[in-house]
Structure formats: structure tokens, C-alpha cells
Computed example of a mutant assay.
Amino acid sequence: MVLNGIKAVFFDLDNTLIDTSGASRKAIAEVLKLLVDKSQFSEEEAQLICNNFQTKLLFENYDSSIMTMDDLRVSYFETSMGEIRSGDYKELAEQCYNLWKTCRLQMLTIAESTKNMLSELRKSATLVLLTNGQRQVQREKIEACGISPYFDAVVVGGEHAEEKPAPSIFLHCCDLVQVKPQDCVMVGDSLDTDILGGLNAGLKATIWLNKNPHGNRNPNPAPHYVIDCVTRLPDVLRNLQ
């Protein structure tokens, strides 16, 4: 594959190479069943508990000196249950979290078409997996889906001083695989982290994975290219100016 001077391709992980959102929805569905079938919560109450849990994940502030990530997330379920009805929910919260975590990790798989695309692309360019997130959480996802062998380097934002969109982590990736920013492209689903970060770091191009092309016709920041499926990437790279 001729890549017009591109020496490295940086890939986001969540919702770019693996369907993290879909896996999370399916895992939450299993938790809902557990809450309704094995507890005194109604379907409406169970949905509120799960909604609260997911909201707490969005605004997560983790300090490893206080507790483990697993204990913190168990507390999200426990607190969410207590907000619905008073009681001792420690054991049930642990069951819900363990079920959610196990199901989600099991459902994080890489499509065969994506594997083939990465294998073929790696013959012509260095591939770097660049993902934001807390170290334990992201490393568990990476191990669960078995994606590491398709990459020359794996960089987890939570292991560094700054995450995407900070230029520093993109420049760290460049140094890691000994390439210049102007010889790299960034591929990801997030405008705020992947695309903005690639632009901030001065990469050759940013490629936005937008699975809902009718939902955002004027993205900001504006990526250089837009694709609706990650396996369409090689076509863009071949014609990249």
C-alpha cells in the first residue's frame, strides 16, 4: 500500500476500533435483569440506578491513594441504590459491578475486517494505539480484546502527565516510534480529543470516524477527512494529499 509519505498512523481505541458503547449497553442490560430478578427494585428503580451509575462514570475522578478503581465503581452502584431506597447494598453493589465489568470486557471484540485492515496497513506504516483513560481500565480493555499484537506501540493517556488533546502525548508517540508529527495521521471518533489533539500536535492529517454522518454536518474542530467506518481508512490514506 502506497501511503504518500505517511510513516505512522495513530488510532484511538474506544468506539474507533472496539464498540465500547455497545458493550457497555449490553452489560448494563444484564445488570438491569439482576436488579429486577434478584432484588426488591422495580424496573423503573433499576433503570434509575443504572443511569446514575453511568453518569458517575462520566464524571469520574479517581485517586489511587484513596481506593482501587474497582472499589470506587462498586461504590457508584452502592450510592445509586441508596439514592433510591435506604439499606445495606454493599453485596448487591459488588455483584452488579462484577457482572457489568465481566460482561463488558467479554463483549469488547475486534471485527475480523478491522484486524485485516490493521495487519495490511502495518506492512506500510508504524501503528500506534493512543487511548485516553485510567491505566487499569484501559489496560484491561486492551487485554480483553487482544489488540496489542496489531500495534508497534500502545500508549495509555492515564499513564502520562497529559492525555489527548494535549500535544505532549502525541509528540510522545512520535518520539516513541521515531517519526515526525508531519509524517503521522490520527484516526478517532472524538472531535474533542482525537481530532483537536492531532491538529494541536501538527500531524499531517486528522481522520474523524463519524458513524452518524447525518448527525453532525459541520464538525468543530474540522478534521481533514471523515469516514463512516474504520475499514474505509486505507482508501483515504491512499489518496491523502
Rank of each mutant, 00 (worst) to 15 (best):
H160A: 13
L127W: 12
D183W: 01
I169G: 07
A93K: 02
T16H: 04
S75C: 05
T231P: 05
I28F: 04
H172G: 15
S86H: 15
V236W: 01
T16Y: 02
Q54E: 11
G215E: 15
L127C: 08
D235I: 14
A125P: 02
G215V: 09
T109E: 13
E30T: 06
S119I: 06
L17G: 02
L32A: 14
D192K: 15
G158Q: 08
C174N: 11
D88E: 14
M81D: 05
K115G: 14
E162I: 09
I142G: 07
M69I: 11
L121G: 05
D70I: 04
C229F: 10
N216I: 12
K164L: 04
M1S: 08
T16N: 02
T193V: 15
V2Y: 08
D235E: 10
N216G: 04
Q54D: 14
Q95V: 06
V236G: 00
D235H: 10
L105T: 09
R238P: 00
A166T: 07
I169D: 06
M107P: 01
G215A: 13
R217K: 11
K115M: 12
I227V: 13
E83S: 08
E143G: 00
D192Q: 15
I142K: 08
E30R: 11
L199K: 13
Q134R: 13
K56S: 05
A23K: 01
F10V: 13
Q241C: 12
R135T: 08
D235Y: 13
I207K: 00
C174L: 07
N239E: 06
L199Q: 12
G202I: 03
Q47N: 05
I49C: 03
M1G: 09
P213T: 07
